[in-house]
Design a protein around this nucleic acid. Sequence first.
DNA 1: ATCCAGGCTCCTG
DNA 2: CAGGAGCATGGA
Length: 299
Amino acid sequence: MLYDFKITATGEYDFSHTLAFLKRSDREALFFTENDKVIRPFNGAFVKTILEVTGIPGGVRVIARDGEYKHGCREEGADEIKNFVTEWFDLASDLTPFYRMAEKDEILNPLIKKYRGARITRIPDLFEAFCWAVAGQSISLNVTYIIKKLLVENFGTKVNINRREYSFFPEPDKFTGVDTEIIKSAKLTLNKAVTIKTIASLFTDGLLSRERLENMATPEAVKFLSEIKGIGKWTANYVLMRGLGREDAFPLGDAGLVNALKNITGRKEKLSEKEVFGYFTGWQGYEAYATFYLWRSLL
DNA sequence: ATCCAGGCTCCTG
DNA sequence: CAGGAGCATGGA
């Protein structure tokens, strides 16, 4: 046993909603879910192991059985795991102000009652977030999961832990020297393959990085990212929401948002983008949480 | 079979 | 500037 510790979330949190989101596809390539737990390999700077995460009131419990410390750094390893899980499940955010706003909102009020403690499920690996968003443009989640699995199988890193093999999402440099036709073979359109390669190069060249985006306000970051060919406002916002946890980012134009609002309002015909935007203008500053509560209603 | 999926680019009028 | 075709694939 390497570790067994708890992480307490800031404010209300209910792991069952995170789990529901993680279980939404049986084609997930990077982690497994069993009844009440999620299992995921972790290969950080200080420890290589398998994480088992379960819910506890107001937080999660993390158990790491097999694996090894690197450079004998046990404490540092614990810290990087805590940071990783905290980011993944957005445990450091406080949704109290969001709830206060949502209570007075006709659409959101029933959702925050029903899914109390739900949060953004983030994608801690920023490059993965870009690839996921680009791959998922205009296709169903089903197909997006298939593509992700192909990217992981064809370009990902494999690591042996306790004689079992686990896969990690490819690093940007796994794409930079590759012909776009090869990338395209992961069931991508040519444009998407080119975009993924472009983003990979921007990362390896240091022109695009987490640090750079973190130093920009959300509208500025959306503008910056939209200048990359293949990235539009949906993708830019999606990445900022899921990759960086920006609470004021949301994927306007998203088909899931349209469906959720359609179900909730009981409308027959689908809502226009302008109408969706109309709802979100009342949710300023908390668009990402509103998005996740709407998405949650679709699971 | 046809349409739509957690879109974007490019071309047309 | 608005509107629409094309892209890739799998489900409904």
